[in-house]
Design a protein around this nucleic acid. Structure first.
Lengths: 364, 364
DNA sequence: ACAATCTGCTTAAACGCTTGATCAAAAGTG
DNA sequence: CACTTTTGATCAAGCGTTTAAGCAGATTGT
């Protein structure tokens, strides 16, 4: 009988109530119940303050106090077991930090998930199939509420089989032959916005340096460019569109071609390209925006905002992609008609675009 | 009696075994047991193939097959409940995507965690105290194995009280008055490396544009600079060190000062500063590295690798910080003597540094 | 031939919590 | 005053696992 739980054993250190020494095993609900002289059921009811539970004010207070004194923390694991589902949302990314973009997706997803009481479980697959499979398995085993499957650049993708075992939404990618939920940037809209920045400033002969590599962005932005021209009543001139590899070198190398075109403005496929273009232009003694207005695409903060002059561009809504992905997963957004949601790419005007001074003859 | 579990009800769709329709509730171990005609204990033993468990070859095979047929997935929640601890590692960050850096920390932590069978639970606090508290609570409630508390730039920090309730390690930050485990970049070493890139190319008059804002980096890099000079037998000249705000503008604005110093090389506090410096230099018709050798610090990929010429710099080991943090947390690294581990900042040589052509008279 | 040992599997308790069913006492009703 | 109702709390089953302990039947030792 001596092994019976001794009642009211003097506390070792009653001074700082919430100090739960890590050495002692975690406080459970049972201990709280004993401490407060009630049943665990009561404690549970108090904690979750169930609407229809009838608990006396005195008891409730006593329980709450005991919880504080003991520094009790609910065990989410047990909670989840009972409810059969967790408050986790999985995020499977093919690149988590290869680019700042991926970070933004995580950021947006994290914030939105948190807002709804969920936590993000992140896995980085580096594009490795087996890893991806394991990652998804792990998430399923943890009974995640759903999975966000994201890619670091906008592209079509296959849907891993295991994904079908839970709710999921594709983020920054889409499945051409399936009606899977997806959220992607609206490239066409972006292309239009970019072009319109130029149009608004009076430019009429606007070049578009597109990417050499095929992607939704390549087609979409071109279409947006054409739409913007059309809206402005400017005839589309195929000669003003040409391709370059979408990086600094590409932009730098495109200068020569560009200058042949006799244009006053140029829309670059992305910011890095614009960065190279800047160099090429400056090297020829040309200045921006006076001699050439330029707009980029992506709004890579580290680059765009700090070039000289700061680059006007169009932002890829990565943060929003993550956030919208979560909302779509949770079904908190008013259901869209199409399963694939397209997010706007907002223009970010800085100083690389000035009014067109060349429509009138140069320095008349 | 009709509500009894009907035995061997014909399968609805026996064609694709592993296709577990999401509509049906998840397959549990019990169902596998029934399917295989054994007890759940047996199934458990087979799954974890316990060394000392005695299971017949036939039974084992049958169980394994049933698992496959039913598409069974263990419920990690239940597993964790029993074991009392999860395979989670929490990552609390004050900024998850404000900078590409934070992404790298996550990346490193996730890779390393994964390697040891753990998953990352990420929370972004945006520096907000209550959020931080909630985030830590949530992690504790999920019985994480430990917590990585990370900051996006190297700095001293307070340790949130709740952290003490579990194992934790500070990443990219440290607590001046506590012996908490921490892992940070070795700024002194970095400063030395940066300077030595220049020294090795024969430069003797090397300026250092330090930051205006106090930080471990400011002091550390300066010390590293001095150490490198000393090792090279170059007298430290306080006039060659001056401060500027650590961004593009700062670098651009520092050019004037710099040119007064009559130096052949400059070590910038960070890459962004170097970027501004490039502009200022070019604008004055100076070329890099011929007229001025420049090295940066941080190795911000998006920037450094693509400037013209590509910038020599020193890398902040963000990925490694995350990875080492996890190792430290799990205790897999050979215990270091000091609780704070300093990681090397490796030099990344590119083309912004050439041999010193000015020690000898120009074009002799 | 009988006990001792081994083999293969099952029983049942436990993990920490939730929740519908219960129940005793207090309060309200006619 | 005998009754229903309300109030405040408890019981106990169950969530899906793990694992120590148990138990038949087969195998071995002598």
């Amino acid at each position: 009988m001596t092994s019976e739980k001794s009642l009211k054993e003097p506390e070792v250190n009653p001074s700082h109530p919430p100090t739960t020494p890590r050495t002692s095993h975690p406080v459970t609900m049972r201990e709280v119940a004993e401490g407060a002289g009630v049943s665990v059921a009561t404690v549970s009811l108090v904690i979750n303050n169930k609407k229809d539970a009838r608990i006396g004010a005195a008891t409730r207070k006593r329980v709450l106090e005991t919880i504080r004194e003991l520094g009790y923390r609910p065990n989410a694991l047990a909670k989840n077991l009972v409810s059969g589902s967790s408050r986790f949302i999985g995020l499977v990314a093919d690149a988590i930090a290869t680019t700042p973009f991926a970070g933004q997706i995580i950021h947006g997803a994290q914030d939105e998930a948190w807002k709804h009481g969920f936590v993000l479980l992140v896995a980085n697959t580096e594009g490795d199939e087996p890893v991806e499979k394991d990652a998804i398995s792990m998430m399923l085993e943890h009974k995640v509420r759903g999975i966000l499957y994201s890619t670091w650049f906008h592209r079509p993708t296959e849907i891993p089989a295991a994904l079908q075992e839970t709710d999921f939404v594709l983020v920054n990618c889409f499945s051409p032959d399936s009606d899977a939920l997806a959220v992607v940037p609206d490239e066409v809209h972006g292309g239009r916005e970019a072009t319109e920045i130029l149009v608004r400033k009076g430019h009429r002969r606007i070049a578009f340096i597109n990417a050499t590599i095929p992607a939704p962005a390549k087609d979409g932005r071109l279409q947006g460019y054409r739409e913007a021209l059309e809206s402005a009543g400017i005839a589309f001139d195929p000669h003003l569109v040409f391709d370059a590899y979408p990086d600094q070198e590409g932009g730098y190398g495109a200068v020569e071609e560009l200058l042949k075109r006799d244009v006053t403005a140029v829309f670059c496929y992305n910011d890095r390209m614009a960065m190279g273009l800047y160099d090429g232009l400056k090297q020829r003694g040309l200045s921006i925006p006076e001699d050439m207005a330029v707009v980029g695409f992506d709004n890579q903060e580290v680059i765009a905002a700090h070039m000289r002059p700061p680059l006007s561009t169009v932002a890829l809504p990565h943060y929003e992609l993550g956030a919208a992905g979560v909302r779509l997963l949770l079904g908190v957004d008013e259901a869209a008609g199409s399963p694939v949601v397209k997010l706007e790419c907002p223009p970010v005007e800085r100083e690389s675009v000035g009014p067109n001074t060349l429509t009138a003859p140069r320095l008349p």
